[in-house]
Nucleic acid binder design. Structure first.
Lengths: 235, 235
DNA sequence: AAGTTTAACTTATATAGACGAGTCGTGTCA
DNA sequence: TGACACGACTCGTCTATATAAGTTAAACTT
């Protein structure tokens, strides 16, 4: 492993287990050079990484300061599926059922949205999330077949993202999300236990690979009372 | 301005206006050294920044490649007030009225939430956002008086964040957000033009300074049909 | 006592050079 | 023809050194 990464790991570990206390000042770059027997550039690279990951804050002329634990825990506020957050948040698990799994040709609205040729081969997956005996979330995923080959209903029942990243080795770069309330549709009524709710909260999600190609479009439709979204925005 | 920042700006500009085309390969570090008369370290720092901001993708052994425009536009996914996004998104402006401005002592629920001593002096501000003649958003802010001294109704009518950052020089580190639907309250009915909507979308926002202290808690209450939240999550 | 200068610390920027490591095409050899 | 070695190119890491710029406190001046 690269030397600056080792320094990063060691310092990060010391902050996680409290050897380096929150609010305290780290040794200066010169001191760290000696303790780790590294050049200043290498030490600085480790410190930059620590700051990037939310462990410390550098202050020109003053020093490098350890941030509070609270801030550290949220260091990876990346792309997570909402049902996962949901499950971990409420401490109970969610039952997922694949309600529909089909191969389709991209309809015009989707081709336009994803910048694809109309008729591109896609997978379309409907998954229903059941929580405490009620169907409260409907996820509709569209995947570009060429980019996610070999997707099956069985995989969809577990975690599609695991398959995409671990099995296929695709690297996800970023996702655009939009959240808004929408009128309930016929599909919502069919799949979900809606009671009297007339609206659903819809999260649309466009996910892109590193090369810049979009491989997924998803709509996650939540019953009003079971919707929650948490987020940490860092400056 | 720092030299690596200048190089960054020039390259970024060339990518935005299409001089450097998407998917194309940037000149090698050695070439850039000569064109910008800089050392390799400086050129690399500019390239790292470009990658961090989503302009390019570096490939060990191959080169640095320009990403597609789409990815560039969303480079800043920081903390922005929702009304700002709202206004820029719809291309029209929002009228803000300060409906209430008072100094209070932190009630127990707030003291607990913000980890303050009960009775801490606070400002409480209610602001109503009017869009196309209808009051559709109600913002209720609570600020710690010690951390945001000298706040006035006049300032609240403009931008409180500007005051906090520019005038007071406070550095905002991160914000925790939560979005959920809630039943309409009496206050909502009083301040907003709710029509028949029985629910509002509530964004709660806890904002922290670099030292880790929380200086603000805000609830932003949106009429269902006027709520929208956009976001880009980067890995 | 109050303001100013200075010195000593901190991090930030820039340079130059060396070597490591991944990629790709070309030429050689079997 | 096919496998392999090599060279030339790319970015990645590390070192060493110099100078700039922000911060702080002590020393100095008024």
């Amino acid at each position: 492993m690269a030397k600056y990464r080792q320094i990063y790991e060691q310092l990060a570990e010391q902050m996680r287990n409290g050897v380096l206390e929150a609010e305290s000042k780290l040794p200066s770059e010169t001191e760290l050079m000696h303790t780790y027997e590294a050049s200043r550039g290498t030490v600085r690279k480790a410190l930059d990484l620590l700051q990037e990951h939310g462990y410390v804050r550098k202050h020109h002329g003053k020093g490098v300061f350890v941030l509070r634990r609270e801030q550290i825990e949220f260091q990876f506020n990346g792309i997570v599926s909402f049902s996962e957050v949901y499950a971990s948040m409420l401490g109970r698990s969610i039952q997922t059922t694949v309600a529909s799994f089909e191969e389709i040709e991209a309809p015009p609205w989707l081709a336009e949205r994803m910048d694809l040729k109309p008729g591109t081969a896609m997978y379309r997956v409907e998954r229903v999330r059941n929580f405490d005996g009620e169907n409260v979330i409907l996820d509709v995923n569209y995947f570009v077949k060429d980019l996610v080959p070999g997707l099956t209903k069985q995989i969809a029942e577990r975690s599609i993202y695991e398959y995409v990243e671990r099995e296929l080795g695709l690297q996800i770069s970023y996702a655009k999300r939009k959240i808004a309330a929408e009128d309930v549709t016929a599909l919502d009524r069919m799949r979900l236990d809606l009671h009297d709710y007339e609206y659903v909260i819809v999260i649309t999600n466009d996910t892109f690979l590193y090369e810049g190609r979009q491989f997924e479009y998803t709509e996650s439709r939540h019953r009003l009372d079971k919707f929650q979204f948490s987020d940490v925005a860092r400056r």
